[in-house]
């Protein structure tokens, strides 16, 4: 799959990545060659193969429904870029 400028822009938008205009052709080239390499998989027929999401055939462990966490807002918000009154602040969201 060869990607062009608009493909890269679309992907970058989905991933919320700011990419400067001048870098787009380079990314388009890189991504195209990575996808081309990846497409070597197509040489193998996998129609009958069950996809494998996990290396081990393990089952989800379950935890008891107990409150184990205490309020650590001060500690957690010490690393936050912008807080006020215990709230994380972001630019105005318009619904």
């Amino acid at each position: 799959m060869s990607l062009d400028k608009s493909d890269v822009e679309k992907i970058a938008h989905l991933a919320q990545l700011g990419i400067s205009e001048v870098d787009i052709p380079g990314y388009a080239d890189n991504l195209s060659s990575i996808l081309e390499m990846v497409e070597q998989m197509n040489a193998v027929d996998t129609a009958a193969v069950t996809p494998m999401a996990h290396p081990l055939d393990a089952v989800q462990p379950l935890r008891e429904d107990r409150v184990t966490e205490t309020d650590q807002r001060e500690r957690f918000q010490a690393v936050a870029p912008s807080v006020d009154d215990g709230l994380y602040l972001v630019p105005r969201v318009v619904e």
């Binding site: 006020d84 709230l87 602040l89 630019p91």
Partner: peptide, 12 residues
């Protein structure tokens, strides 16, 4: 929370 926090939105 869309009340005005210095022109920002607050997240809880």
């Amino acid at each position: 929370l869309h009340e005005d926090y210095h022109g920002m939105t607050g997240i809880d």
